[in-house]
Computed example of a mutant assay.
Amino acid sequence: MQKALLMHKFDYEYKNYLKHISSQNHVSDLTVQAYAKDLLLFRDFLIELDIIGGVTRNHIRKYLHYLSANKLSPKTVNRKLSSLRSFFRFLQEQKKIENNPLANIQSVKEPQVVPKFLQRQQVLNAVSQLDTTDETCLRDALIVLFLYGCGLRVSELVNLTIHNLDLYAGQIKVIGKRQKERIIPLPKSLFKQSQQWLKTRRSRQLKASLSMENL
């Protein structure tokens, strides 16, 4: 009976927590779903170990061992640990608990992975294979060069508009994470092809306009 009451209390606080993070503007639905999944796994662990009292640091250490024993990667373990940190911090802020069991619990050490990347000449060789007299190929070449030459994220590239490109100043304005704006110099390799793209685009728009007038 006592165990059932404690699990009911956990579920109640868990739902309140999810409502809280769902109301935050910077938290996506996918993030909320990930937190929910992580917390339910922890709840199942508590049930499996027949833990009916308050959660302690010793329980957290056992949980970390449980996750590692199930062959989860250090990165995944740390993400689940981050979910618990956020949850128990919320409980502490709401005066639901006095001590945070995650205090002084260190993240699992993750192996350093050296990212793989293309050399400059490899990128230029790939772009040179495209027929830039074709509008679609020219667009594809610009996509590759903007990503590589300007260091843009895919989301930043997708959100670029014609108004972000300033050929006179030789720069582009990028809106990044959390609407942060940054100005990036335009590499020489992009300048000529950007001019060609704008010329092709204007020509296509003019033809479309004339075609509409002749209807």
Rank of each mutant, 00 (worst) to 15 (best):
60 I>K: 04
72 L>M: 13
140 D>Y: 11
124 L>K: 05
86 S>K: 12
129 Q>I: 01
80 K>M: 14
77 V>K: 14
122 Q>E: 15
135 E>L: 08
134 D>V: 06
91 L>D: 08
75 K>E: 07
87 F>L: 06
132 T>Y: 03
121 Q>F: 03
109 K>L: 08
85 R>F: 06
114 V>L: 15
66 Y>M: 03
157 L>M: 15
71 K>W: 02
68 S>C: 05
104 N>T: 07
69 A>N: 13
123 V>A: 15
140 D>G: 12
159 N>Q: 14
148 Y>E: 08
79 R>V: 02
97 I>A: 03
153 R>F: 15
102 L>S: 04
71 K>D: 13
63 Y>K: 04
107 S>V: 01
81 L>K: 10
67 L>C: 09
126 A>L: 15
147 L>T: 04
119 Q>Y: 07
162 I>W: 07
128 S>R: 09
147 L>F: 15
102 L>D: 05
146 F>V: 05
154 V>P: 06
111 P>N: 02
120 R>N: 05
147 L>Y: 15
73 S>Q: 10
142 L>T: 08
102 L>C: 05
55 V>Y: 03
122 Q>H: 06
71 K>C: 09
95 K>E: 12
135 E>S: 11
97 I>P: 00
100 N>A: 05
107 S>N: 13
162 I>Y: 11
112 Q>C: 06
85 R>K: 11
57 R>F: 01
91 L>W: 06
160 L>W: 11
67 L>H: 01
75 K>I: 08
126 A>K: 10
56 T>W: 00
99 N>K: 13
93 E>R: 11
118 L>I: 05
104 N>P: 02
137 C>I: 00
145 L>K: 13
133 T>K: 13
134 D>I: 06
62 K>N: 07
155 S>W: 11
73 S>G: 11
163 H>V: 00
72 L>W: 04
110 E>T: 06
154 V>M: 15
107 S>T: 02
112 Q>E: 09
115 P>T: 04
125 N>E: 14
157 L>Y: 13
114 V>D: 02
152 L>R: 12
74 P>F: 01
161 T>F: 11
81 L>P: 09
73 S>N: 09
146 F>T: 04
156 E>R: 12
105 I>W: 03
126 A>Y: 14
116 K>T: 01
99 N>P: 02
153 R>Y: 14
65 H>I: 02
118 L>V: 05
55 V>H: 03
62 K>I: 00
74 P>I: 02
112 Q>V: 03
127 V>N: 12
159 N>W: 11
110 E>Q: 14
100 N>Q: 08
67 L>T: 00
151 G>P: 09
73 S>D: 09
148 Y>D: 06
117 F>P: 02
101 P>G: 01
161 T>Q: 12
72 L>Q: 11
64 L>M: 04
77 V>R: 14
119 Q>T: 02
139 R>Q: 12
58 N>H: 01
127 V>T: 03
133 T>M: 07
122 Q>W: 00
87 F>P: 06
90 F>S: 06
83 S>Y: 13
90 F>P: 00
74 P>Q: 04
